[in-house]
Simulated scan of single mutants.
Amino acid sequence: MHTTEWTTASAGGALTALLGGAVRALRARCVLRGRARAVGMPVHRPRRGGRRGSWSFGRPGGRLRLPPGFGRYGAGLLLGTGVAVSFHGLRALLAGVLVAAACCRWLPERPTAEERRAQAESAALRAQLPLTADLLAGCLASWCAPATAAEAVAGAVAEPMATRLAEAAADLRMGGDAEESWARFGSDPALAPLGRCLARACASGAPPAAGLARLAEGSRASAAAAAQQRARRAGVLATAPLGLCFLPAFVLIGVVPVVTGLAGTFLVHT
């Protein structure tokens, strides 16, 4: 068997195995759904956790779960197979193996459910930071105790900031050191500026209202700048596919005929 035929057969076998595994997984899911409905077991989509489109059979642990790294290794296998099939010879096979290995090594892994939840919570805390700082500044400027101010603001803001403030207020009510309590409150990177501001005010005895107001203003300015940067980046990313579509057409229609005509004229004269 020639090298080209062996490469094509190997790539086809790998692709067939991958598609066969996906078909078997989908068939098993359909069989489980049919059995669950036959016995009257509830079949529903989970509201929290799990992947979009996954199904649960009577209990949260009954969802179809892919092994870790399935997407990365599957993409590497598909890309390596495409490179090996697109060209011929042993070099194409080696290039396909290298491409597959590089994809498996350097492609980013899909974040887990816990990582996505932590990212969403951190983003929510950053969004709530300016309002929380303004409310704390107003409460502390009216000579409220730190624990009372934290409890009042915790009742006025939404989660997850309300839980963090309630924990800090409970710690202060139990007689904990104010500086240490606010330092623990600011252990989250999203709340670190607010925790440092309050801990510094407790250590120095200075009124924290002015610092909190400056923190709220700076947080709003940073959020506005980040939103503008995302908008500019979205515009650049939107024009990139158009450039990739029009550039080959421009080269084929505008550049290639000119070069071909000049080359033909040069060859005729020589």
Rank of each mutant, 00 (worst) to 15 (best):
L247Q: 07
T4V: 15
V157E: 09
A190V: 10
G211S: 08
V85H: 12
G89M: 09
A210E: 09
V39Q: 13
L107T: 12
H44W: 03
A199K: 05
A231W: 06
A118L: 11
L262K: 03
A120W: 08
T239W: 06
L79K: 03
A249C: 08
S181T: 15
A178R: 04
G261P: 12
A156H: 08
R52F: 12
Q119G: 02
T7E: 14
D177Q: 02
G218V: 06
A28N: 02
S219V: 04
V83Q: 05
G186F: 15
C202P: 00
L165S: 13
F87L: 14
Q228I: 10
Q119H: 07
E151T: 10
G12I: 10
S86F: 15
R214S: 12
T163W: 04
R27G: 07
A22W: 08
L64F: 02
R35C: 09
A113E: 09
R232Q: 13
A213S: 11
A221Y: 02
G34A: 10
T4A: 15
G205K: 09
P208R: 13
P189K: 11
L165Q: 12
G96M: 08
M1S: 07
L26S: 05
A102G: 06
W106C: 04
L26F: 03
T81R: 02
V23F: 13
W106T: 06
L262H: 10
C104H: 04
P248R: 02
T239R: 12
R230T: 06
V153C: 07
A14C: 02
L191C: 11
E159S: 09
S222P: 00
A234V: 05
Q228S: 13
A170P: 08
A127N: 00
A216T: 07
V23I: 11
Q229Y: 07
A120D: 12
G235S: 14
L107E: 08
A168M: 12
G21M: 09
L191D: 10
G40A: 07
A162R: 12
Q128W: 00
L79P: 04
R45A: 05
G82R: 01
R33P: 03
M161G: 05
S222I: 03
V43L: 03
E151A: 13
E114H: 03
T163C: 07
P241T: 06
L237I: 14
A123L: 09
G195S: 10
A133V: 00
V259T: 08
A36R: 03
E179G: 02
V31Q: 02
V153N: 09
G62P: 00
G235P: 15
P193I: 08
T260V: 15
A190Q: 05
S187V: 15
D171E: 14
R51A: 10
F87H: 13
L131P: 00
D188P: 14
R230P: 08
Q228W: 13
A203K: 15
G211L: 12
S10R: 12
L64Q: 01
E5W: 14
A183R: 15
V157D: 09
M161Q: 11
V268S: 04
P248D: 04
V258N: 11
G76R: 01
L131A: 01
A28D: 03
T7C: 15
V268M: 03
V83R: 05
A227C: 09
A152T: 13
V251Y: 04
